[in-house]
Design a protein around this nucleic acid. Structure first.
Lengths: 125, 125
DNA sequence: CTCCGTGCAAATACTTTGCAAAGCG
DNA sequence: CGCTTTGCAAAGTATTTGCACGGAG
C-alpha cells in the first residue's frame, strides 16, 4: 500500500482512540508505547503529511502547539482559555461552505474555533 | 490613559488601515515608518496584550505565523493554500455562539477559517 | 520620585531538515 | 535492487523574556 508504514499505522491508531485533540508530542509519547524507538521527527513528518492529505485535521488554537483531530467532519472546537481543553461541538451543517462558495472560494477544509470558558471552569470558580 | 503609548497607537493605526491579515513582522516593518526605532519585541508585546484584551483578533491558519485582524466582529477567513492569502467573508450571524452555549461553554471570541483555493488561483490555473 | 512601557539581545521551544541506514515490494 | 520511510541529531525560526533605561505625571 502506498505510504504505508508501521509507524504511520500506530500514529493513526493512537489518534483514532482519543477524544482529546493531542499535540505532536503527546502522540509521540503514546506511540512510543507501541513502537518504543520511534522518533519525534517521524511523528511530525507523518502528521504533517496526513493532514495535507486530508486524512486528519490540524487545529491551531494559538497556544503554541499544533493539535490534531482524527475526526475530519466539520465540527466546532471549543477552546477554554483557562484549562486549555478543547471540546467538540456538533454542527448541523457547514455554515462556511455556502458563504465561501458565494465568493468564488473553493473550500476543502473548514475549522471552527470558539475561545471562552468551558463548563467545568465555569462551575468550579 | 491606561496602557497608552505612542507605540501601541501606531500599531493600532497600521492595523486599522489594512485589509490584509498581517503578521507581527509585517506590522513591525510598517510601524517602523512611523517610529523608526521601535523594537520587534514591543510589537509582539502589544499585539499579544491587545488580542488578550479583545481589541484585536489573533488568527492562526497554521502557516507558522500569527495573523492579526483589526475587525473583531465574527466573520470568516478564507485561507488559500496556494497563494497564502486570507480573505474575509461576511457572516449573517455567529453560528458557533448558540451551539457553544448549548454545551455550557461561554464563548468570547469565535474564529472561522476555511482552507481551500481562492478565486484568483482558481481562474489563473 | 515612582511607575510602566520600551529597546535590545539573548533565550526558549516547537518544528523542520539532512543524511545514512533500514524496510517494503 | 529501487524507492520510500525511519532515526538521530542538528539547524531553523517565530515568539518570549530579562533587565536597565527613559518618558509621563
Amino acid at each position: 500500500m502506498k505510504n504505508y508504514s508501521k509507524q504511520r499505522e500506530a500514529i493513526l491508531t493512537v489518534l483514532s482512540q482519543t477524544d482529546t485533540h493531542p499535540t505532536a508530542n503527546w502522540i509521540y509519547e503514546q506511540v512510543r508505547e507501541i513502537i518504543p524507538n520511534i522518533s519525534l521527527g517521524t511523528v511530525y513528518r507523518n502528521l504533517s503529511q496526513l493532514s495535507q492529505d486530508g486524512d486528519i485535521l490540524s487545529i491551531n488554537v494559538g497556544d503554541g502547539f499544533e493539535h490534531f483531530d482524527y475526526d475530519t467532519s466539520p465540527h466546532a472546537h471549543l477552546h477554554c482559555k483557562k484549562c486549555g481543553c478543547i471540546h467538540d461541538a456538533r454542527l448541523e451543517n457547514d455554515p462556511l461552505a455556502k458563504v465561501a462558495k458565494k465568493t468564488g472560494f473553493t473550500p476543502e477544509t473548514t475549522i471552527y474555533v470558539a475561545y471562552g470558558i468551558c463548563q467545568n471552569c465555569n462551575t468550579n470558580n
